[in-house]
């Protein structure tokens, strides 16, 4: 049984600078996703819509768009769950490159501030550090982040101030801080409690509602704030000790 859907796609042509809405009608079979619909429009009607897609099993995080006003991954939203004029728009808070493709380089680069790596720079390792399943449980939720940038697109603070590091970077920083094998915790908290760090977040909480892998970046940021306050108090009380120990290491 096929059902008729009208798809409105927001187009943008970088050369002419024009924005307009394309209307397409498609006949969807049972379990057609928005991504399948876009593929069909692009291939049969040669509409030439530019969009990102790769794995079609909602694990790579490239097909993030706004469908009917909600930030979703196109590959796991089904047409039968949406009401009829399905409107597809590019992600908010990012410069639009063309049609549904947005420029997320800046947000990806902000991950650098989260120092997303453990300290071990050695190349060979013989011994295996023990990590109990309980310790692993701590980082299970925030380590699911697929970097699809939907949370950054749902954050009003990021929309108004592009220097803010964004919920994604904070969630990944929280994942590495809570990892039992990590010892960069101090430096990472320095970076997070900095000017563009977590203090700009007013806990709107929308980034957690939008996350397709329910990583809950809002919760991670609040916990980082608490850790940040304690860290700052500690580093404020003993500034002399800290600088001396660094030279020793």
């Amino acid at each position: 049984m096929t059902k008729k859907y009208t798809i409105r796609i927001r187009r943008y042509d970088p050369q002419t600078g024009k924005n307009w809405y394309d209307i397409h009608n498609i006949y969807a079979e049972r379990r057609m996703t928005v991504l399948d619909a876009l593929n069909q429009i692009n291939e049969h009607e040669r509409a030439g819509i530019s969009y990102r897609s790769s794995c079609r099993m909602s694990i790579c995080g490239s097909c993030g768009t706004i469908v009917n006003g909600k930030s979703v991954l196109m590959c796991n939203t089904f047409l039968k769950d949406l009401e009829d004029p399905v409107t597809i728009e590019p992600l908010r808070n990012f410069a639009i490159v063309k049609d549904l493709v947005v420029d997320t380089d800046a947000a990806m680069e902000k991950l650098r501030d989260a120092l997303p790596y453990t300290t071990f720079s050695i190349t060979k390792s013989r011994c295996e550090s023990v990590q109990t399943p309980k310790q692993l449980e701590k980082i299970k939720q925030t380590s699911q982040c697929i970097k699809c940038m939907l949370c950054v697109s749902a954050c009003p603070i990021y929309g108004l101030d592009y220097n803010f590091m964004g919920p994604a970077a904070a969630a990944i920083a929280y994942r590495y801080n809570k990892d039992s094998r990590d010892h960069v915790g101090e430096k990472r908290l320095d970076s997070l409690t900095g000017r563009n760090g977590v203090w700009k977040c007013n806990f709107v909480g929308e980034c957690s509602n939008v996350c397709p892998k329910n990583v809950d970046p809002a919760g991670a940021i609040q916990k980082m704030k608490v850790m940040g306050v304690l860290h700052c108090i500690k580093s404020a009380l003993k500034p002399k000790l800290k600088s001396k120990s660094k030279s020793k290491k």
């Binding site: 600078g17 908010r92 808070n93 009003p156 929309g159 108004l160 592009y162 929308e206």
Partner: peptide
Amino acid sequence: LANTPAPDWWKEKPAYKIY
């Protein structure tokens, strides 16, 4: 940023009303 909707798109969203 060029050609991006004005950053007050979220004002009429219901989820932000709670905020």
